[in-house]
Amino acid sequence: MKKLWIIFLLISNFAFAGEAKPLGDDPALELRLKTLSQDLRCLVCQNTTLADSSAPLAEDLRQEIRKLMREGKSDQEVIDYLVARYGDFVLYKPPVNESTALLWFGPFLLLIVGGFVLFRVLKKHAGNEDIQAEDV
């Protein structure tokens, strides 16, 4: 049934087909906007990215970013523009500085220290013929 319907649609509509147009008039710019805004946080509905949010403010900001990009601003300049107004909160990728050092390097430190401790314990564990509780 579904198949027949497909064929019917194919025949009936074929003559009028036109090419779909990209929504924005500059696809390259749209792609750049998309890539950039995927790492930015929408301030209104705080758990979506600026790229995915449908809030009016997000729409305004995307419009603003388009304008800035057309003016030839770099991605970093666009980010600076937003951070100057809304703070680091808009960045899903927090900047690396003193206060975020623990965030960025803590997990690796944990991995290294954990690996080191494990290695030492294993060595001790393997070396001891006579294993007792006191030897941890």
Binding site: L43, V44, P56, L57, D60, L61, E64, R85, Y86, G87
Partner: peptide, 13 residues
């Protein structure tokens, strides 16, 4: 009207 000044002031709600 278009929210431009709001953006400059960092208005989000």
């Amino acid at each position: 009207v278009n929210g431009k000044i709001g953006i400059d002031y960092g208005v989000y709600g």
